[in-house]
Computed example of a mutant assay.
Amino acid sequence: MEALSVSARPDGEWTIIHRCLSCGELSANRIAGDDNALALVRLALRPLRDGGIGRRMLLAL
């Protein structure tokens, strides 16, 4: 699994969007209390830094 981005649910809870490296399936997993906050923020900013990720994700949906 490859972490692609972070998403926020309507209740404010964050989820990490993962893609399976073998089949390409997307999944969302809740963040854990012991996850690295800096790594989460970097992951959240990744689509802004690399515009290709956002386009690939939209096309995958």
Rank of each mutant, 00 (worst) to 15 (best):
V41L: 09
P10A: 11
R19E: 06
L58N: 15
D50S: 12
R46I: 01
A8K: 10
P10M: 01
C23V: 02
A8R: 08
A39Q: 13
S27Y: 06
G54L: 02
S7H: 14
A8F: 03
A44Y: 12
R49C: 03
A39D: 14
C23H: 12
L48Q: 13
R46Q: 13
L38Y: 09
G33V: 02
I16R: 01
L43I: 07
I31L: 04
C23D: 06
A39I: 15
R49M: 05
E25R: 07
A32Y: 02
S7P: 01
A28L: 10
I31V: 11
R55I: 14
E25D: 12
L59V: 06
E13H: 03
E13A: 05
R49T: 08
E2H: 13
M57L: 12
A32H: 14
D11W: 02
L59H: 08
G12D: 04
M1E: 10
A32L: 12
A60E: 03
R9F: 06
L26Q: 07
L26E: 08
A60P: 01
L43A: 07
S22T: 14
I31E: 11
L45W: 15
A32E: 15
L48N: 14
A60C: 12
I17D: 07
V41E: 11
L40P: 05
P47G: 11
L58K: 14
I53W: 04
G33E: 05
N36T: 06
H18N: 14
A8E: 03
D34W: 08
V41S: 07
M57H: 09
L26K: 01
I53E: 14
T15G: 12
A60K: 11
L40Y: 01
L40H: 11
M1G: 13
L61E: 15
D35H: 13
P10Y: 05
G54S: 10
T15Q: 04
A37E: 07
L58V: 06
L26T: 10
L21K: 04
L40S: 12
A28G: 05
A32V: 02
A8I: 14
N29I: 08
M1W: 03
V41A: 11
R42L: 14
L45M: 14
R56P: 04
W14V: 04
E13W: 06
G12S: 00
S7N: 05
G52Q: 13
E13F: 05
S27L: 02
S7A: 08
R46G: 00
N29Q: 12
R30S: 09
S5K: 03
L59I: 13
S22Y: 01
A39N: 11
R19G: 07
S22P: 00
L61N: 04
R56V: 00
